[in-house]
Design a binder for these strands. Structure first.
Lengths: 346, 346
DNA sequence: CGCGCATTGTGTAACGATACACAGATAGGC
DNA sequence: GCCTATCTGTGTATCGTTACACAATGCGCG
């Protein structure tokens, strides 16, 4: 029963009360087989009687020098991680590995504030995963400076960290090559360029001004195709959304279809592509005859909606990142991808 | 620059090399204002030179006796938390509070295995949130036995834990009262009854056999209405789904519409209700004229689809749970809810 | 000149546990 | 009966930091 508010029950206390050394109590919890059955039983009794709650995780971590947990640094409010379908797939992969290995998962949202650094540094984890962030994010230096293994998903390339992801530029080039041919007015529906997520329409924006590596590479890939096809990338309309969300993207999809009179859209995710599909349907346009649309990720909805898209496994990439954060030393090549062509007939 | 692989740089080391006591170095990191500017500068230089990475979070936690983190125990694979819309709203609320207070969020999936207990116990957190679980879940005893604040969402009532959630029974009663009147064959589309998530159809199942409190209460509420309306609850068909997922529920929705020839369905979530809507549409049935359908949660899609549903804020409930887990002592009443009536005309 | 007070630094003692090496006891083999 | 092997238990030394109380210093001021 115990009670006594203040003096927390400790292993030493249990040891004293059961007439054994602290080490023996420790063994009772960590290697019960090493302890004589009688002793084990008695220690357990005393522990129960005293209300001892088992070894303190923090003290144990200090002594053992590992935390059995990995941290996932998100460059966004945490809500984002739960809303964005890609982030969810990725985190699911991370979580799978965590379960298999019996370790914890620590979510660390960062929003560009001063205190982010402290939150990241003070997380009790053995390794970090950084989810897509901008170039030269100060948090990246903090994380890599901690001397723990770090996996960065979607770049940027960082000293002291392994980068996981597909070849975005190559996939963009190929996707554009599937989407743009024959089009009068090809356009792009893009993720935000930088932390300042403002929805807007730009004509021929310079990819070098894009702070998110994934977005930049995809834009570069589209440019690659344009040049090969004799189109001027500097006249390419690019609509930028504030968030990777089907509903949120509706306004910019409307702009592309109405103001730009587009007939071919490369969207940077399935969600954004769906927004274009929605806009097209509302206007009675046929896909792909009147408007060709394509995206990235090949999530479950992509199949249902018959969307041409870049197939990749965010789940698998999440698993890879988790392994890296756990200190796995096996080399990691670029993740697999392929353009999956479908004919939206719906 | 430093390097030296093994001997980790410690605060004491920095102290020695800069000719001050460890305490002074500690102050440099925790209360820089308390240290003379010159000293501060010099210590920082030495630290940088040695490659000292700042106070070790684990050691600090041990000494300070708090971890600046809360744990969320999920009675499911972690993937679930990212896929289930309700869980996501809830976790978003939890995450909001975490950000505001600058603390970490630890996700702890449990799947009924032996090792769950260890994972829960070994998490370095200051408090716990338990997401909807079954009655007498052993993990509940473990969590409440840790002497840290515990919030349980959706029951069951547990000694040593505060329960957060709406009055499911009352809301179910009222929702049934909106949905069933005039129906020839009212039915229920239900969450799983217990951990063994088997999709199936039952006729008049006994609510007392349902292990999940939320599900049980809702079923009881429907029974309440039936009795008041002179219907025999023991003849009420209840279709049970394996997962709270629109697509997953399709099969059971078909069963209700086809085999049961239902014309009024109370579904336990918007997702399940949508599955019924889908089934009805495919058969050309009008809603609500031919089939009345209602659900719970009032998520964004519910409005779009014109679904009658129980409005509640899982986000707000998540926030409340987080506050409790952080040791907030303010009393918590039952969460707010209301039946929102809409006319599905789509 | 002496007193009070603010500023800055230090020593000591935990926080709660475990790694490691070794000591006694018991048992078995020949 | 001796030697080795196995089983149990113990002592010591950290793991890296911070709380607390106090010491030293310097300065303003009556």
């Amino acid at each position: 029963m115990s009670s006594a508010g203040s003096p927390r029950v400790t292993m030493a206390e249990v040891a004293r009360r059961s007439g054994v050394s602290p080490m023996t109590v420790s063994y009772c919890y960590n290697q019960p087989d090493r302890v004589a059955p009688d002793t084990l039983r008695r220690v357990r009794e005393v522990a129960a009687e005293l209300g001892y709650r088992g070894p303190d995780p923090t003290a144990r971590s200090l002594r053992r020098r590992h935390n059995d947990a990995i941290g996932v640094v998100l460059g966004e409010h945490l809500a984002y991680a739960f809303e964005d379908p890609q982030a969810r797939r990725f985190l699911t992969g991370v979580a799978e590995v965590c379960r298999e290995r019996g370790i914890g998962l620590n979510l660390i949202p960062t929003t560009g504030e001063e205190q982010d650094v402290d939150r990241v540094r003070s997380a009790s984890v053995d390794g970090y995963i950084v989810w897509t962030t901008v170039d030269s994010d100060p948090v990246l230096d903090v994380v890599t400076g901690l001397g723990k293994p770090v996996a960065v998903h979607g770049g940027p390339a960082t000293a002291g960290a392994r980068v996981v992801g597909i070849d975005n530029r190559a996939s963009a080039r190929e996707l554009a090559a599937r989407t743009f041919p024959g089009a009068r007015r090809p356009t792009v529906l893009s993720f935000p360029f930088d932390r300042d997520r403002r929805a807007r329409l730009e004509i021929g924006p310079d990819p070098d001004r894009v702070a998110f590596p994934v977005t930049r590479e995809r834009l570069l890939g589209v440019h690659d195709h344009c040049r090969e096809a004799g189109r001027d990338p500097d006249r390419l309309p690019v609509a930028v959304v504030a968030r990777n969300d089907r509903a949120e993207a509706a306004a910019m999809a409307d702009v592309l279809v109405d103001s730009c009179d587009t007939d071919a859209v490369v969207a940077m995710s399935d969600q954004l592509a769906f927004a274009v599909l929605d806009a097209a349907r509302r206007r009675g346009l046929r896909v792909p005859e009147d408007v060709a649309v394509s995206g990235w990720d090949d999530g479950p909805d992509a199949r249902r909606e018959g969307l041409t898209t870049v197939t990749q496994s965010l789940l698998e990439q999440g698993r890879t990142c988790a392994l890296i954060a756990l200190g796995d030393r096996a080399p990691v090549g670029a993740a697999a991808w392929a353009v999956t062509v479908r004919t939206s007939t719906r």
